[in-house]
């Protein structure tokens, strides 16, 4: 994973909110990269820092957050740019899709205006050219009767249709990277299946890099090439998607896989992970997962395991790779 050729590469990213004794360490030294045409899945539970790491890397952290580290989009460090330059670079090179399309879309603007705005601003297209492009985009994301839909407002569309509009907006400037933060979580499963299908197909056609943030390893499994598992602000494991399924190395990843009920595989008990994720204002001294870990090796109580290679291309932050 080389930084120079990556579509997006994050290096040693830290995010804190507040100061002094009550400082919340939301992201603690996260690094990953996405090659052009590849998909990275960032998986974690609420409070793991998965969304914040990606938002901070793209300059979208809340104003109260302190962000340190570097984030290269196509070789340019986004975190070293001034506000105007950041806006231009991001507008041209990054597309975003968030969980709730209703709050991401402007309720007062037609679908057409929301798509053409970016095209005119960042690509310098005329109104007419932008409209033609908007129509193309809506057809590309599988919206039937696209010409009529251009005139519609968000409230006139279903959740699935709105999320397609979001994807159309995100792709309008042919970005280097698509950032998708739980984009199917609020949707029904049959709609989710449609959206996943569209993204898979578009990526093959356009060849952009994708970061797909999700709490659901299952959703990421069908899309991602590489997966990063986050917990307590750190990467606990990263590997190719098949490796992560076949041979998860970290007790937390194994716990996540065991906790989910799976269709057609009945068990008397689910293997629950006891307790709850740690408070980012009161993180433990040793391994961040120690409290909930089924192994609880002694040294983990006071020593933070390094993120080390357990196999080529497979990293895990644990001392206990042998004990399965």
């Amino acid at each position: 994973m080389s930084t120079t050729t990556a579509a997006l590469a994050v290096e040693d990213l830290h995010v804190t909110i507040g100061r002094g004794a009550r400082v919340a360490r939301i992201v603690r030294g996260v690094s990953w990269s996405v090659q052009p045409g590849q998909t990275l899945g960032v998986v974690g539970e609420s409070g793991s820092g998965k969304s914040m790491s990606v938002l901070a890397a793209t300059g979208l952290a809340p104003a109260t957050a302190r962000v340190e580290g570097r984030a290269f989009l196509d070789g340019t460090d986004l975190l070293g740019l001034g506000p105007g330059e950041l806006r231009r670079t991001r507008g041209r090179g990054l597309g975003f899709v968030f969980q709730d399309p209703m709050t991401s879309l402007n309720p007062l603007l037609t679908v057409e205006r929301q798509i053409t705005e970016g095209i005119e601003e960042h690509l310098g297209a005329t109104r007419r050219a932008a409209r033609t492009r908007a129509l193309e985009l809506l057809e590309m994301v599988g919206i039937p009767d696209a010409a009529r839909r251009l005139e519609a407002y968000p409230h006139q569309m279903s959740g699935g249709m709105r999320q397609r509009v979001m994807i159309a907006i995100a792709l309008a400037c042919e970005p280097t990277m698509l950032v998708a933060d739980e984009p199917t979580t609020a949707l029904d499963v049959t709609t989710q299946a449609q959206i996943l299908d569209i993204v898979r197909e578009l990526q093959e056609r356009i060849g952009m890099g994708v970061v797909w943030i999700s709490h659901d390893l299952g959703v990421v499994g069908g899309l991602a090439d590489e997966v990063v598992v986050m917990y307590g602000g750190q990467v606990l494991e990263s590997a190719g998607v098949q490796t992560l399924h076949d041979a998860p190395a970290h007790p937390y990843t194994r716990g996540l896989l065991g906790a989910r009920p799976r269709l057609g595989r009945l068990r008397e008990e689910l293997v629950a992970i006891p307790g709850a994720p740690p408070d980012p204002r009161a993180l433990p001294g040793g391994c961040v997962f120690y409290e909930r870990c089924p192994i609880k090796a002694e040294r983990c109580a006071h020593e933070v395991p390094p993120l080390a290679e357990v196999a080529p291309g497979h990293l895990a932050r644990t001392f206990c790779t042998e004990e399965r």
């Binding site: 709490h215 716990g255 906790a259 009920p261 008990e269 689910l270 629950a272 992970i273 709850a276 909930r292």
Partner: peptide, 14 residues
């Protein structure tokens, strides 16, 4: 609920 906590609650209910 988060996946790990969902499993706790389902086990509790059963």
């Amino acid at each position: 609920l988060d996946v790990s906590v969902q499993a706790q609650i389902m086990n509790l209910l059963r």
